[in-house]
């Protein structure tokens, strides 16, 4: 199976804090790959590494055979036109209408006529069910609608790869359902490759073809959703079942409880 993205032995530090110590990841073409893990383990960092917004300390990040960290600025911008990222907040431009937001990447990167752009915008908005909301400003949208509008903008240039950063966080069940449906249908109809970063196990396991679990600065498990459900690592089981105590302890690292209490008296 061909891989669109390949990450090999990546080490990444934020300041002096290690985030990744030797991470390997492959994203098969045309599939939905989910990257899951506890909060703060650097899942979003993974997306920023692929997008070239962050550079690893060592290791290789490849997108369609291009070595991302070594590209010149110009080449990197060319490669980015082939990928797209859906941010957690949607990141719509607040001074433009929804339709102008969707038209923005097309206007920036193509020389199409305004008429043709309008048609494409309508098609993209129809795909996310927001054709009627084109003239609204982002401030008038609900959180779920904003995310769908941002999704329409993300697919405006028909990218090969689309990266979703926490697409389910803070959504009510209905908009969550809509987004789940959209991610799957876009992947199927447009032949996209998708990376979903999330810690919502139920939704993510439902749509992913390939699941990767990140914890302790490494990939601890990967495979199909079924394989992971039966994974024998205690950490994976704790995460998937949402148990409060286990390999990831309930208590933050601290001295012995009794000693600590007594120490105060002394």
């Amino acid at each position: 199976m061909e891989n669109l993205v390949e990450i090999k032995d990546v080490h990444f530090y934020r300041g002096a804090t290690p985030i990744y110590k030797g991470v390997n990841l492959r994203v098969p073409k045309g599939k939905i790959t989910a990257v899951m893990g506890p909060s703060g383990c650097g899942k979003t960092t993974m997306l920023r590494l692929i997008g070239g917004q962050l550079k690893p300390r060592s290791g290789s990040v490849q997108f369609a055979g291009e070595e991302i960290p070594q590209l010149s600025r110009q080449r990197l911008y060319d490669v980015r036109k082939r990928m797209s990222m859906l941010f957690q907040s949607g990141a719509l431009f607040t001074d433009m209408t929804v339709a102008e937001n969707v038209a923005f990447p097309i206007q920036e990167h193509t020389k199409l006529s305004q008429e043709l752009i309008d048609t494409i915008v309508k098609m993209k908005l129809q795909a996310v069910g927001l054709r009627g909301a084109g003239q609204l400003m982002p401030s008038e949208l609900s959180g779920g609608m904003a995310r769908r509008a941002a999704l329409a903008r993300a697919i405006a240039l028909d990218p090969e790869l689309i990266m979703y950063d926490e697409p389910f966080t803070g959504q009510d069940p209905i908009s969550m359902g809509m987004i789940v449906k959209l991610i799957r249908s876009l992947n199927e109809t447009l032949g996209l490759t998708s990376i979903v970063v999330s810690h919502d196990i139920h939704e993510t396991m439902g749509i992913a073809d390939h699941v990767v679990i990140v914890a302790n600065m490494q990939i601890v498990a990967e495979g199909s959703p079924e394989e992971l459900m039966n994974h024998d690592s205690a950490l994976v089981q704790q995460f998937l079942k949402g148990e409060p105590d286990g390999p990831v302890p309930f208590h933050y690292q601290a001295p012995d409880y009794l000693d600590d209490l007594m120490a105060r008296k002394a």
Binding site: R80, M85, F87, A91, P105, H109
Partner: peptide
């Protein structure tokens, strides 16, 4: 614009 990731989003759109 930085806080709402609009700047990041521009970068990812190759702008």
């Amino acid at each position: 614009m930085r806080a709402t990731e609009q700047l990041s989003s521009l970068e990812m759109m190759a702008v």
